[in-house]
């Protein structure tokens, strides 16, 4: 099974009800968001005047780049398919792709709050929630779960339920008879990264010019994790220690040896 979501741009009216429903359901603090709606256009495209919206959320990718970045110690975890009761045991860090429903989930208990996964997501679909800070971290990572707790209780995701135009459709992409699969057959596409193969499972359906505008404006590039990656991770991990260093006035002592802007004056002398 692979859960997916279709967003029908022909129906979306950009009302933001989905973003509010999500914020209310999961207590997402401002300014963070698990889903968003961005207005695109009106812009003249090769296919004519285009005007649409980009309702975005986690793509629960086939190959999620965020999962590989998690530096938390791995543990053996047993997953249960809530439908069939089947189980599967895997070694996972604090975030993983569910072996049964294909959604990407986070264990907030074990999350270090380092933000490496958030930096890795080319869609900006993860954030570190400072409201969840504990003694060991400055927050925990959070993201769209495709409303897993609701879905397993027999409901549909909050954003889907609230959508006033039924522009959001949720279902199993691996079932050829599902509503979402029918949309894929009609041409619904995910925002794949440039030159990449992540396999986004939140997909968009719309007319040619609107789809063209969406894909031209919001096709992301792979996050450049390169050399900054470990520095960023390390800096985030030691954030609590550094906060103490600041508290006792340690970091004011160093510095002031390099001064911004003096070089311009020297040059003009």
């Amino acid at each position: 099974m692979q859960y997916g979501m279709i967003i029908d741009l022909e129906r979306c009216v950009g009302c933001h009800a989905c973003t509010i429903a999500c914020r209310a359901e999961w207590e997402v603090p401002v300014p963070y968001q698990r889903n968003w709606v961005k207005r695109l256009g009106p812009t003249m495209t090769d296919d004519g005047m285009a005007s649409t919206y980009y309702p975005g959320l986690c793509n629960h990718c086939d190959k999620p780049p965020c999962v590989d970045e998690c530096p938390a110690d791995t543990v053996e975890m047993t997953f249960t398919d809530y439908k069939s009761g089947k189980t599967k045991t895997m070694e996972v860090a604090a975030t993983w792709k569910d072996p049964f429903d294909g959604s990407v989930q986070v264990d907030k208990e074990r999350c270090l709050g380092c933000g490496a996964c958030a930096d890795a997501c080319p869609y900006g679909a993860r954030y570190v929630n400072p409201d969840l800070a504990d003694d060991d971290s400055e927050g925990k990572v959070d993201k769209c779960t495709y409303c897993k707790p609701r879905v397993e209780a027999g409901l549909i995701p909050a954003c889907v339920q609230t959508c006033i135009t039924d522009a959001r459709i949720f279902g199993d992409l691996s079932d050829p008879n599902s509503e979402v699969s029918k949309y894929v057959k009609k041409g619904a596409k995910g925002l794949e990264v440039k030159g990449g193969h992540l396999g986004p499972n939140s997909r968009y359906f719309g007319n040619k010019k609107d789809m063209g505008l969406l894909f031209a404006d919001y096709t992301p590039e792979m996050a450049d994790m390169g050399s900054v990656k470990r520095r960023a991770m390390m800096a985030s991990m030691v954030k609590p220690a550094m906060k103490k260093a600041k508290d006792i006035g340690l970091l004011g002592l160093a510095g002031a040896m390099l001064v911004k802007g003096l070089s311009d004056n020297e040059d003009s002398k």
Binding site: A118, D224, L251
Partner: peptide
Amino acid sequence: MPSPDTSQDIATLYRFLAQCMHYPDSD
């Protein structure tokens, strides 16, 4: 590119490391 928050964390850590290399003084 790291997020602006992460970048500030990196800045703090560099500054701390610079401090560690100063002449050890009681202050």
